[in-house]
């Protein structure tokens, strides 16, 4: 009996040890530049700029929350094998900070979010010397990031610089169109109705760029818990200002938003859930929403139609 229990425990321990040791198959050293990125927005534009000259691996896929994402053993391996690491920085990848810093000592690691000029950044709501990292929702700012990516790729791989440049030109043009389209859509919403309520403070840049008042239940990072006061305050704000819709996010639990909704109801007002927004992560791979442009289009359509009380429109093509 004693022997059996000992064997069982030894087996458990050993199997866990081996499970954590799983190594990725060695990828053949190819012509392609091996780039590892964090959030989907960066993965997408890097892929578009690099074309088939780069192999881009994004660590965080659809629905993944970058504020709390902890790198796994496999992620560390991928990062170690990379020629170039691109991440957002500005503390977006909160739980990976030390790891990225460590990687930065031995290979090219670029915080592309810091491409945004300091005077164009928004201050962090809670911390004095930090900035709001959700820069991708102001399309004009994201263009700075695109510039940094192409610059970095070209320096590392000058042979293909021309190709990168051409791809970038196409991308920038597309982004200009997108930016204009968003402004156009935003204009359709009357002044008094331009309020976007979301699960966390991910849309401040969006608000500033396109003229919306933005409020999130949780702060800049989803790591913090929304307290009772936060729920009450937001519910009061919604009820007092008779805001018709609020939005859930794909990478954040919906429970807290539902709690706010119930609280608003108890104050005698009905707020509907206007739809799901992609805040820190894009949609599923392979879909239109799984691209940067698609993500922005989806968000804007959802927001505008919910605020206007109509069905979502087509995108910006």
């Amino acid at each position: 009996m004693k022997l059996r229990v000992t064997l069982f425990i030894a087996f458990l321990a050993t199997s866990m040890f081996f499970a954590s040791c799983g190594k990725e198959a060695e990828s053949p050293k190819s012509e392609q530049l091996n780039v590892v990125t964090t959030v989907g927005m960066i993965t997408d534009i890097t892929q578009r700029i690099g074309g088939d000259k780069v192999k881009v691996t994004g660590l965080m896929g659809a629905g993944v929350d970058p504020h709390t994402y902890k790198a796994s053993e496999g992620d560390v391996a991928r990062l170690s094998d990379a020629d170039l690491i691109l991440f957002n920085g500005l503390h977006l990848e909160g739980a990976m900070g030390d790891l990225l810093e460590q990687m930065g000592k031995s290979k090219k690691t670029v915080a592309v979010g810091e491409s945004v000029p300091v005077d164009k950044r928004l201050a962090h709501a809670d911390y004095e010397n930090a900035y709001d990292p959700h820069v991708w929702f102001d399309v004009s700012l994201w263009k700075h990031v695109v510039d940094t990516v192409v610059f970095t790729l070209s320096k590392m791989d000058p042979d293909n610089a021309k190709l990168y440049g051409d791809n970038t030109a196409k991308l920038q043009a597309r982004l200009d169109t997108l930016h204009a389209w968003v402004q156009e859509q935003a204009a359709r919403v009357p002044e008094g109705q331009r309020v976007v309520i979301t699960a966390h403070d991910a849309f401040n840049y969006f608000g500033r760029a396109y003229g919306f008042q933005v409020r999130g239940l949780q702060g800049i990072s989803t790591a913090a818990e929304a307290g009772t006061a936060d729920v009450q305050d937001l519910a009061a704000f919604i009820a007092d200002n008779k805001i018709p819709s609020m939005f859930v996010e794909s990478s954040v639990p919906t429970r807290s938003i539902e709690a706010v909704q119930a609280a608003v109801e108890s104050r005698g007002f009905a707020v509907s859930i206007g739809g799901e927004l992609f805040s820190d992560a894009m949609g599923d791979g392979g879909t239109h929403e799984g691209t940067y442009v698609g993500m922005v289009e989806h968000n804007v359509s959802t927001i505008v139609s919910a605020l206007l009380g109509e069905t979502p429109q087509e995108g910006s093509h």
Binding site: E225, A226, G227, V231, V248, S250, P253, T254, R255, A259
Partner: peptide, 17 residues
């Protein structure tokens, strides 16, 4: 992300309904 499983580490009392 939507399941919020790691919310179970410290609870999410304010989201009680």
């Amino acid at each position: 992300g939507k399941a919020g499983l790691d919310k179970f580490l410290f609870g999410q009392a304010s989201a009680l309904m």
